[in-house]
C-alpha cells in the first residue's frame, strides 16, 4: 500500500485557494451530520458480553480457596474470617478495584463473576469496603437494581456514516 512512488510524492504542494475552499466545504458537510455522542445519563449503553464492571460475589458458591485474593493486582480483595464460618471468605474494596476481572477468571467455582454495573455511586470512601457478607448482599442488590433501571437502553453499533450509532433495545 505504501509503494515507493507514492511515498516520494506523498506531500504534493497544495493550491491554497482550493484547499481553503475544500476545508470549508468539508466543515459544512459535517455540519449536517448527526453527532456520535451517547447521551449517557438519559440513555444507557447495553454493555457487551462479559463486560468487566463491578465484581459480584456469591457467598454460597465460595469454597474459601483465597485464589482471588492472591491474584488481585491492586489487592482489592482480602480474606476475612466470618463469625460462624470455618473457612475464610473474600471481602472487596471497590475503591481499589481496577476491574481487570482476573479474580473471576481464577475462581474455581464461579462464585465471582463480572457484571455490567460500572457506574454505581458510593458517597463515602468507607462505604466502598465490603466484608464477605456485605459483598454478597450488595452484589445481589446491584444486579437487581441494574436490571430494573428505567433509562432508555441502547446498543452501540459501528456506523459507516457517523462512526457510532445507538439502537434502542427491548
Amino acid at each position: 500500500m505504501t509503494n515507493k512512488e507514492e511515498r516520494d510524492n506523498h506531500r504534493p504542494s497544495i493550491n491554497p485557494v482550493l484547499a481553503h475552499l475544500e476545508a470549508i466545504a468539508t466543515g459544512i458537510k459535517w455540519l449536517t451530520r448527526k453527532p456520535m455522542t451517547l447521551m449517557y445519563p438519559d440513555m444507557e449503553e447495553k454493555k457487551p458480553e462479559y463486560f468487566r464492571g463491578f465484581i459480584i460475589f456469591n457467598y454460597n458458591k465460595c469454597i474459601g480457596c483465597s485464589l482471588c485474593a492472591q491474584i488481585c493486582p491492586p489487592r482489592a480483595i482480602h480474606m476475612y474470617r466470618v463469625p460462624g464460618d470455618k473457612r475464610i471468605r473474600p471481602g472487596y474494596d471497590a475503591g481499589r478495584c481496577i476491574h481487570c476481572g482476573l479474580c473471576t477468571d481464577i475462581c474455581p467455582t464461579d462464585a465471582l463473576d463480572v457484571s455490567p454495573v460500572h457506574d454505581e455511586v458510593f458517597e463515602q470512601i468507607g462505604s466502598m469496603d465490603f466484608d464477605p457478607v456485605e459483598w454478597h448482599i450488595i452484589s445481589k442488590k446491584l444486579v437487581e437494581e441494574h436490571a430494573k433501571r428505567k433509562r432508555k437502553l441502547v446498543i452501540t453499533r459501528v456506523d459507516e456514516e457517523v462512526g457510532l450509532r445507538y439502537e434502542p433495545v427491548e
Partner: peptide
C-alpha cells in the same frame, strides 16, 4: 453549537 455539530458532538 456549530463547532459541536461539525465535530460530531452535541
Amino acid at each position: 453549537k456549530m463547532a459541536a455539530r461539525v465535530q460530531q458532538r452535541v
